[in-house]
Structures are given as C-alpha cells and as structure tokens.
Design a protein around this nucleic acid. Structure first.
Length: 340
DNA sequence: AGTATTTGACCTCG
DNA sequence: CGAGGTCAAATACT
C-alpha cells in the first residue's frame, strides 16, 4: 500500500504543477495536453496499483470488490462526467480543458480525454481517497455505474436472447444535435425510439449498421438522464463481430502521437471526423470478466494494417489520408459484401 | 436509387 | 396486461 501512496504523491505533484502552470498553458494547448497526459499517466499507474491491491485481498468482500474492480473504467467515466457538470456549471473560466480545445480537435475525443483527466484532478482535490468513497459521497453506489453489475431498483427483464449488457455514461454533445448518441467508433443504425415509463426522455435503440451483412449482434440503447440531461446512459448489448470497423480501434494512439497529429491536421483540415473514437474505457482492457474486448482487439489488427497501408501508400501526410483510409475501408466492405 | 430515420404496430416477457 | 424491445412502412435525406 505504501507503494500506492508513493504513486499517488507523485501524481499529486504533477497535478499541482499543472494547476500552477495552467494560466501559462492557456495559449498552448499542446503543452497543456502533454502535461495533462503526464498527470493522467501518473494517476493511472496509481490506480493500477490500487487495483492490484484490491484483487489480492478481495475474497471476503466479494460483492463490493467485484463491482469496484470491474467498475473502474466506468467509474472514472461517471466521476469525470460529474466533474464535467461541475465545470460547466461553476467554472466556465479558462480552467476547463474541454472548452479550451474545443476548436482544435474532435469534441468527443476531447471530452473523453479531458474528462478522464478531470476525474483525476477531482480525486486529488478530495484527498484521493478512492473511487468508492468518492461515489459514496455523491450518493451513488458503484453498481449504479455499470448496469451489469447491480440490478437497478426496478428489476430488468431477462429476455431469452438477453445479451451481455454493460452501461456507460457519456456526456451528451453540448453543441449541435444533442440527441446524437456519443461517437464510439462504430456505426449504428437507429431502429426505434420509445418513451420509457418514469423517464423524462425517450430511449433510442440502435443496432450495428452491419447487422445484415455480418449478423453483427451489437446493439445499444441511448437514454438521456432525467436529472442530468447533459449525460446520456448508453447500454451496449452484444459484441461487435464486424471487426473491420476501422473507426473503432480498442484504444487511442498515444497522446504524444495524438498531439502531433492534432497539430498537423488542425492546420490543414477542418477537424471533424478526424479521429477514430473508440472511447469506451471498458471495452479495451479493464474488463476483468474477459468476455468483452476480443472483437475490438482483432479489429485493431485489421485497422492498424489498413491505416498504415493507407498512410504510407497515399503518398500524402495531409489530413486527407484519413479519408483515403476510411474510403478504403468502405471499399473493403463493399467488396466483401459482393463476395458474400 | 439507396440509405437512414421516424413512428405506430406488434411481439415477448414478467 | 403493461412495459420494454423490435419490426417495418412511410418518410426524409443524400
């Protein structure tokens, strides 16, 4: 546990430095971003240590610890959303990372990253005493964060073809079409919308666009929260088997890489649709259940290969390479479709 | 013309 | 029987 504390102290220091330097960085988003990355990494390391401690001493606290460990990714999300709300409501000043970058990079990506960082800072501010305690202080149970783990107050139906469910919280778009579900890297087709009893906002039903072609079972439901309309609850059901979704790598490129790319693309192109947005913190790795993630992983094998192919064969380093890239993927889809 | 969205009807389950 | 989930025709969009 001592080791954890050391990690935490290091993270605190970095966060403090960042806090102090924030005014100076306001005009230099790239430096700001890398600083944030440092903080983020430090806290991630600490979190990883905590997770290890948890897993090694969890037997007798089964109910709480399983939700805790499994819920880490989503927990960070819900907390970060909370911070997001606070920032929006109380702190419209330059301290909001998201507002500072909103013009220079994809908003969704930006929000995810900035939120993730925000939660770390928030943890620091409230003594870094851990996610569970933080949640408790907010009147939330861990299980509320992730739908699979704890049944909601109203028992959920378990249909015959009930697929694995997991619920994530996402910030609703603050601009544009706020009904749009958050971008998660996959392409979805809306097939229904329904008023839900006791809910202020209707629930939207989406399925994978490639369901027909590849019988991809992935579905998701998007539900705006009653009390916090800025947050949408996205319930995923089933895994994608359409591995060729090039827009859905299991993780982002390293932030330095991102930064480099951001700085080039923002100069040459508008920033819409520039980055693949697989921002689900849980899908990639944190899922201890082992059930999820496999598809997105082998998806990356294809995606990376194609990306590299597109980038190096396009003969251009401009932002258009991404278009080529996506173009090629679509071509592949078309191609495969014909072969079917 | 092809594809996506909307929306009322229908189905399934508890 | 009612609520949630899905279907599919109509409509909109590109």
């Amino acid at each position: 546990m001592e080791e954890v504390m050391n990690f935490m102290m290091h993270a605190f220091e970095l966060a403090k430095n960042l806090e102090l330097e924030l005014p100076n960085m306001a005009n230099n988003p790239e430096i700001l971003f890398s600083s944030i990355h440092e903080v983020e990494k430090a806290y991630s390391d600490a979190k990883e240590r905590v997770r290890m401690v948890f897993s090694s001493s969890s037997a007798q606290h089964e109910t709480t610890t399983t939700t805790t460990t499994k819920g880490f990714g989503s927990l960070a999300q819900i907390l970060s959303h909370d911070v997001f709300m606070q920032k929006n409501q109380h702190a419209p000043m330059g301290g909001s990372v998201s507002s500072m970058h909103a013009h220079s990079m994809d908003q969704s990506l930006l929000m995810q990253h900035s939120f993730d960082v925000s939660v770390f800072l928030e943890n620091k501010m409230i003594n870094g005493s851990g996610d569970a305690q933080l949640l408790r202080s907010k009147g939330l149970q861990l299980g509320e964060v992730q739908g699979i783990e704890a049944p909601p107050s109203r028992p959920k139906k378990s249909r015959k073809n009930d697929l694995e469910k997991r619920t994530e919280m996402f910030p609703a778009p603050q601009i544009g079409n706020t009904e749009m579900p958050p971008e998660d890297g996959f392409t979805w087709r809306k097939y229904g919308q329904k008023e839900i009893l006791g809910r202020k906002y209707p629930r939207s039903y989406y399925r994978c666009t490639h369901q027909k072609l590849y019988h991809c079972p992935a579905k998701k439901q998007v539900q705006r929260l009653d009390d916090i309309p800025n947050i949408v609850e996205v319930t995923y059901r089933g895994e994608h088997i359409c591995h060729k979704s090039l827009t859905a790598p299991s993780s982002y490129p390293p932030l330095p890489t991102l930064l480099a790319n951001i700085s080039t693309t923002t100069q040459t192109t508008d920033s819409s649709e520039r980055w693949p947005l697989a921002v689900n913190l849980d899908l990639g790795g944190g899922d201890g259940s082992g059930g999820g993630g496999s598809n997105s992983r082998f998806g990356v094998e294809y995606a990376v290969a194609d990306m590299a192919d597109a980038m190096f064969n396009s003969g251009s380093s401009s932002g258009n390479s991404m278009e080529l890239l996506f173009q090629s993927s679509e071509d592949k889809w078309e191609h495969d479709e014909k072969e079917d």
